[in-house]
Design a protein around this nucleic acid. Structure first.
Lengths: 187, 187
DNA sequence: ACCTGAACACCGTTCAAGT
DNA sequence: ACCTGAACACCGTTCAAGT
């Protein structure tokens, strides 16, 4: 890669991260190119689709989230590790604008993106451990778990945001019908 | 209202309903105006915002959903009525393109739209009945319930769609942690 | 090999002119 | 009182021309 190409790539990534954080995943691509000081064509050369740019901009974030999951699985009992990680995934989904749809792509049976594969792999680790321990239903796949977590984040987002995450996640974990006990709390 | 104004209003509503069904809530407003045979200004005169048009187009649908809830509350035991209604809300959320964001507005403490108020009122009826009966947690407000249902629909939408609704709704009702029993099935 | 920016198609919204 | 449609601002995407 030529020197100026590499520099443009880096600047685009930096500006894009800021733009997505500020305006969400719908941020103007033209504006990103302008702010990075390159022609719009250059943006499309480096990142042919909005998704590609979004992915590149948040790759580090996603990596950290996956790494954090592995860390928790080493440090805590399976049930607690899973609960805590799901909580952090929800927080990231809401708090980091533009991350939401990206995490949504992880919730498919065969994730098409690198970050999707990574997140799903972490979910699998935490889920199987909790299932072996006996604190999680066996009829639940990693895909189901990620979808439901995405749903909980969406539900919490309809409210004031983070405040509802703990509550709604606990409700998913315990069920909303009467008669269930409360084996694990999400905080 | 002048005769031509009333005719335009009706045509816009008809075309808009079709357009939203076909292209989702982001359907082109300009296209709607063209297909209705009116100038774009006329559309804005009748429906100043996209939301207003969306609401008008789906008002009948929402009314039917609320009415259906009242009907279920008369015909079935509270727990079953609630479960069945939530299932139907999820189906409508996914199946009827453009309805999703509209139902989202019902999930606030003080809904701003007529249809939001209606849906929330139905949710309240079903929820309080189930709580009185003792089959639903007491620490759950109608707003929470609608938000969680919206979340479940979103989760199911990440999959193939309707197929997952029953499963995910049951998981919310029963909880995903081990040790819970299954008092009510959503079908 | 890479970049630029004009050009094109599209969309939402407004408003002066018309009836 | 209501409608029309040109006009404006904006956006995504492509591509001929440049270096």
């Amino acid at each position: 890669m030529r020197a100026d190409a590499r520099r443009n790539h880096a600047r685009l990534l930096k500006v894009a991260t800021e733009a997505f954080a500020e305006h969400g995943e719908g941020a103007s691509l033209d504006d990103i190119a302008k702010r990075a000081g390159v022609g719009s064509g250059t943006l499309y050369r480096h990142f042919p689709t909005r998704r590609a740019l979004l992915e590149a901009a948040y790759a580090a974030r996603i990596d950290a989230l996956a790494e954090r999951g592995e860390e928790l699985s080493r440090e805590l009992p399976p049930g607690e590790a899973l609960t805590k990680w799901l909580h952090e995934v929800c927080v990231a989904t809401i708090q980091v604008r533009g991350l939401k749809s990206l995490l949504g792509t992880a919730a498919t049976d065969t994730p098409l993106t690198t970050c999707g594969t990574l997140v799903k792999s972490t979910a699998t680790t935490l889920l199987t451990a909790a299932q072996s321990e006996g604190t999680l239903r066996r009829d639940l796949t990693p895909t189901d778990l990620l979808r439901l977590t995405h749903g909980i984040a969406t539900a919490a987002e309809l409210g004031s945001g983070e405040r509802e995450i703990s509550q709604y996640l606990r409700l998913l974990l315990e069920g909303i019908l009467s008669g269930s006990s409360a084996p694990v709390s999400p905080h």
